[in-house]
Write a protein that binds this DNA or RNA. Structure first.
Lengths: 344, 344
DNA sequence: CATCTAATTTTACGCGCGTAAAAAAATGTG
DNA sequence: CACATTTTTTTACGCGCGTAAAATTAGATG
């Protein structure tokens, strides 16, 4: 039963019997005060439920405890999942995550960063849109705020990059597909939004030529983030154009394209899978949350969400806590795991 | 080319030749100053790129321009989509949306609201977890901050509720299913997390009895938000238990359950669809973004995302702008559309 | 118990802006 | 142009907290 409501730190100083500067120290870092005073403060806190005014704090602290998280498209469960990981990690580290989605729009990405700058974040974790991003503006932002890029690497932007090892994972997948059937044709958008797509295309080419095989590509025209629709349209066209051989294998640049391909195959009466009576194999990439419920279940390569999130935040916090920016830009890549399922 | 960087409103007053109090008025509401002075300010703004310190502003204004948006589970594309709508609407209305996900955890929901209270939001749009929510704490929050509930209605919490008309849409669906085939069995979780699920169950019962049909239920045990997995397990059990008749029809409480059911049907070698050679029909509810790519495409009922988002924000802003809470609690429901596709 | 060190208290100022009140200036009106 | 009205300027204070410096106190050590 709280008595009269505490209005500010001054009043709380009175009821707790602790001086205001000491309280200020405590709220800034509970470990910075003597154990006994900390106990007294927390006892008083239990009685009175006072919390410092967040605006007054941040106005005077040069460094807030805010961490911006910007993802290109939150309606994509892949990013929702990474964001969820990052949020909880931030909270555990005693920071306040501010989640923003660019909704696939470069202008929104810029305004998100603008909005973040206004709240003077300690740092920002940024998964950029990629090709569509306003490079110039992103660069300016990265210059003024400690920033770690994740998922998509853009030039030399930001203080670090943490992402997925596309070369290794595409290698894993191509090896698997070749061992269990014919070599795959690579299915992708002709002008991908995401830098990962370019890496995967390149990786596929390298891996295939290393195996002495001829790379084949199906490039679907399409823009934006409606990958399933693009995959569907592209597959429909491919099925009728004769570019695919009998019992051929399609390796999609990502799972969402693959979901579209599976849907097109179903509508075309093509059976997807590894069995003898199947017409087609389809594989994806990313281990999208829904890929285990497609029909058939989608064979794919997982990304190590957890490790990527953790490492990205680590990189950021080490800068935040040391108080100075990275001297050189590090890149960390995590390898995924092959997830063989029914579709290939 | 900005000259020396403007540090505060005082300095901007000097370079713009406008007094600080007038500037303060302008930033609070550009229309509150004379047109000519507004032009002068904006001309100076174009030259110097100064922006008021957001913390100093909010410290002194009793009402911030922040609007909290809390959803139960952001990794669900359904909520991601609604959140996206709300965010853009907030921005357009000149407010700053703060998006929070409870990640399916009641404790996170409470701490989200706690965090929001700390930033003194003008109002909050809350889609509660439902059954799992800490009613007491939500009630306290709604008491202290103007709050509009959406998606899930809890008791008489908040100043208004905006949601989906489950009775009408289940009616639409049952009518359709009965016209095009046999009457459906209702497939759901035995202890749903979401109040909508209870409404749908009840609606199904009402509609069926009104038609003189016997309601049938398949209730799957399962907790949490992993609906696809729950749907899959439940369907697998149902297929072998003999509760389903030949060419029976399953109406799922939501699309994500249906996606699990489709996956189970595929794994069981059951053909889903309306054709004569099919073993089963499956329908869902919500028009989940992925339901148009399932195999076969999922027949479902759409929710009117746009209208729900718009109406919820309207209700909130009318309170914010008038400055006082609603005298009585309004509920608004929007009807969805039947989306007939291949699965039923 | 004397001594040293680390922690706390006292005192005081500043952060950037909201806002109130009175004075001054700009605008509108006949 | 005199007057009333609206807008802006001047002046001043307050918001809640960070933080620096000096004085004081508590705790540790031998």
């Amino acid at each position: 039963m709280a008595t009269s409501r505490i209005r500010n730190m001054e009043e709380f100083a009175v009821v707790s019997g602790i001086s205001r500067p000491t309280l200020s120290k405590y709220f800034n870092d509970p470990d910075s005060v003597r154990r006994s005073t900390r106990d007294r403060i927390e006892a008083a806190l239990a009685r009175h439920d006072y919390r410092p005014n967040i605006y007054a704090i941040n106005q005077n602290r040069r460094l807030t405890k805010n961490i911006g998280i910007v993802v290109p498209y939150l309606a994509d469960p892949f990013f929702a999942e990474i964001a969820r990981n990052l949020e909880t990690l931030c909270l555990d580290a005693g920071f306040r995550p501010i989640l923003q989605s660019s909704h696939g729009e470069p202008a929104t990405e810029v305004s998100n960063l603008d909005g973040l700058r206004a709240i003077k974040p300690a740092g920002v974790l940024l998964a950029p849109l990629g090709r569509a991003s306003e490079k110039q503006q992103l660069a300016e932002f990265c210059n003024s705020v400690p920033t770690v890029l994740f998922d998509s690497n853009i030039d030399e932007l930001g203080d670090a990059f943490v992402g997925h090892d596309n070369l290794k994972s595409i290698g894993l997948m191509v090896d698997y597909l070749c061992e269990t059937g014919g070599p795959p044709v690579f299915f992708e958008m002709d002008r991908p939004t995401n830098p990962n797509a370019y890496n995967r295309r390149r990786s596929y080419g390298q891996v295939m030529t290393a195996k002495g095989l001829e790379p084949r590509y199906i490039q679907v025209e399409g823009d934006g983030w409606d990958f399933e629709a693009i995959g569907y349209r592209g597959a429909m066209r491919a099925f009728t154009s004769g570019v695919l051989g009998d019992r051929d294998t399609i390796l999609c640049s990502n799972d969402r394209l693959a979901i579209g391909v599976l849907s097109a195959a179903y509508d075309s009466g093509l059976r997807v899978g590894c069995d003898a009576d199947c017409d087609l194999r389809v594989a994806g990439h990313d281990d999208h949350p829904f890929s285990q419920y497609t029909c058939p279940r989608l064979t794919t390569v997982s990304q190590n969400y957890g490790a990527i999130a953790e490492s990205a935040l680590d990189a950021l916090l080490s800068m935040v806590e040391s108080g100075h920016r990275a001297t050189e830009r590090h890149s960390v890549l995590y390898v995924g795991n092959l997830v063989p399922r029914g579709s290939a």
